[in-house]
Amino acid sequence: MEFNVFLLAKYPFLEEAKSFLESYSTVSFENLSSDEDYTRAVKRGVERIKEAILFKKISFKNENLIDFKAEILSFPIAVAFIAALNDDFLRNIYATAEGKRIHELLKRDSYSDLELLLRDQKINFYPSEDSPSSLYKIAFSEYLKVSPQKWGKIWKLVNRQIKLGFVYVTREELSRLVSEHIKNRILERSRHPIDAESFSGPLKKGYIELKNVWDSYKSRFAKFEKETSEVSFPPCMVRLLSRQENGENLSHVERRSLVTYLIAKGQSIEEIINLLKSSPDFKESIARYQVEHLAGLKGSKKKYSPPSCETMKSYGLCFSDEWCKGIKHPLQYKGKPFSQTSKN
């Protein structure tokens, strides 16, 4: 079987990459530690994750094409590391960075590989006949599966061209969708449990290195968690806060609801920015402007209030508990009375 190794190095998650690795693995498991290709692949696997943690993106240089075998093999190794480290926050950071890398590669190569990726990921796409501004259409259910609404209002179904069950998209948009889809598949793959104890040789060394990098990165967030007493937070905000802390990409509405609530509860701009750093798509300058804008320090100088319970309900973000009865606004939430809290 002939392989387009450069293509596999760019997109090591392709089905074909599995066959390539199977056909190439002539080294027995016992001798893996001494195999040079393998050692370089582990090194690149560690690098993939470190880049994701520190720069929120994974690089792709032309020399990666020369060492194509290490590049292809480094991907399943990196996923195995993520599975062994078993932290949802890290899982999100890594998968998002891989997604970004794919999107940037597609864009760099003028989307020439887009249709190949769509077919590989079994995303059904069709040429669009009736919308001049779109090149493709995809089933609305597939469109919704990749949750693109998290990227802003323009991606919400309400703002899309939809007809007879199909959403119309441009090539650029479809490229973001397929990248998001692959990101979700990486998230799934990295949830398969792997016991770090089973690692040896370069894998064990790589795992220890990554654990140290990750632990020191995470300790930066511990401060906020300690200072935030969740007892008086309503369940809707506790959910948003915990999803944010787990590195999930909150939608615009979700993030805005949480930030305006935290501002109203007296959290400082710095504390909120620090919390938002866990977002996979975090960009400090943008986040800072947005938080300061919501706090009334920038732009229109209007301080925004958190949404009422009714609005939270209409967003589908209300998850009331027994202490929500009778309140109309998340800020009115008092939570479990102190006497009851202390009994538990």
Partner: peptide, 16 residues
């Protein structure tokens, strides 16, 4: 989450 998108589509929530 996907149901919410359909709801927003009908209620015109966040329509631009």
């Amino acid at each position: 989450d996907e149901r919410r998108e359909i709801i927003d589509f009908l209620l015109l929530n966040e329509l631009q």
